[in-house]
Amino acid sequence: MPTALIRRPGARLAEGLVTHIERQPVDVELAIRQWQLYVDALHSTGWTTVEVPPIEECPDSVFIEDTMVVYGDLAVIARAGADERRPEAAAAAETVQAQGYRITRIADPGTLDGGDVLKIGSTIYIGEGGRTNAEGIRQLREAFAPLGADVRSVPVRKVLHLKSAVTALPDGTVIGYEPLVDAPEAFERFRAVPEESGAHVVLLGEDRLLMAASAPKSAALFAELGYAPVVVDISEFEKLEGCVTCLSVRLRG
């Protein structure tokens, strides 16, 4: 059964970091309800979830994807590009190890956020320039090389993380909102989508795509291509540069 790690939002969520957009008020109670509906969507499509213990002192901790990168049986525990987010990794590491994964860690002076990593089969694209640096990429490449991964660095300047700009469809086509993609030519196949949040999908299996309610035109495009959008409202997380990918770590499936 496919499994995802999740972490519920804390009371200080509204204090989360914002780098590329204007800060807006965040309704924490609404965010908690939206998070539960996100989790429910995973469950309704056959996924099981494992909850990482909350860490109230870290407002961004709900964005659990940034704590690690999983490939094969190995979880590389990230070293966050933002100092204040580094305490988030400890409990996440313990939780993924309890799921049977080997772990290794990005070490100083490397920095790496999981949201900068896009996996397409054995090809792993990593965004360099924001929260992830060249040394972090070198360490990740070294960790995954024995598993046969092809790690490729791509520039990220216009958005917080690589997966703020692009994700990929089940056939491997990279999708992105072109004004926010630094180097669309870096990908073997690229397709533009009509909305910023339409660039963010989570592959749930059986051609189902978990995506945000704020991208109806993109959902219609994916339906025309034969995919089945599973739509969730994550408006409060979008105010903090969050998207559907960063609210979970997909371990299997």
Rank of each mutant, 00 (worst) to 15 (best):
A41S: 12
E135W: 01
D40F: 06
L140H: 03
P146H: 08
T167S: 07
V151A: 01
G148F: 13
I106P: 00
T104H: 00
A213M: 12
L30G: 01
R152Y: 03
L251C: 09
V244T: 10
F144Y: 05
V156W: 02
L17S: 10
G198P: 12
R250K: 14
K239E: 08
P87H: 06
Q99N: 03
L162A: 01
Q36I: 12
D60A: 12
V151F: 00
T132G: 05
W47C: 02
G72A: 15
V70E: 07
A11W: 05
T132D: 05
P9V: 02
Y101P: 01
P179D: 09
A41P: 01
L180S: 04
V193N: 01
H20K: 15
G130M: 11
R23W: 12
A228L: 15
A168W: 11
Q24M: 13
P179M: 11
G121Y: 01
D108V: 08
V244Q: 04
A4N: 00
D27V: 09
C58A: 15
V156I: 09
I64P: 00
A228Q: 15
V154I: 14
V26C: 00
F190L: 06
G110S: 07
V69M: 08
I64H: 03
R191H: 14
L209D: 02
A134T: 10
Q99E: 08
A80P: 01
D182Y: 10
E178N: 12
I64F: 09
A78V: 05
V202L: 13
R7I: 01
I21D: 13
C246H: 02
C58H: 10
D73R: 15
D182H: 05
P109H: 08
A107R: 15
G242P: 04
I55F: 14
M1A: 13
L160I: 10
I77Y: 05
A31P: 02
G130R: 09
E188M: 13
K217G: 11
C246M: 00
V76E: 07
L30S: 12
M1F: 11
P59L: 08
L209Y: 05
P53V: 08
A82P: 02
H43V: 14
P2F: 04
D113C: 01
K119A: 08
I234Y: 07
G72S: 14
Y71H: 15
R138L: 10
I6N: 00
V166W: 06
T245N: 12
A213W: 08
A219R: 13
G115L: 04
P59S: 10
P54S: 11
T3W: 10
Y38Q: 08
A41T: 09
L251I: 14
G10K: 01
V76T: 03
G130Y: 07
R105E: 15
D66E: 13
G127M: 00
L74M: 02
E178M: 07
R105L: 04
A92Y: 04
A80S: 15
T173M: 11
V96S: 01
C243E: 14
A11G: 13
I103D: 02
Q139W: 05
E241L: 09
R7M: 08
G172R: 00
G10N: 04
E88R: 08
Q24D: 01
V174M: 11
G130D: 06
W47D: 01
R23K: 15
I137A: 05
E56H: 03
T104Q: 06
G130P: 11
L240D: 03
P229H: 06
W35H: 14
A223V: 11
P216E: 09
V18A: 09
A89M: 14
A89T: 13
Q97T: 15
I77S: 07
L210R: 06
M211T: 05
H20M: 12
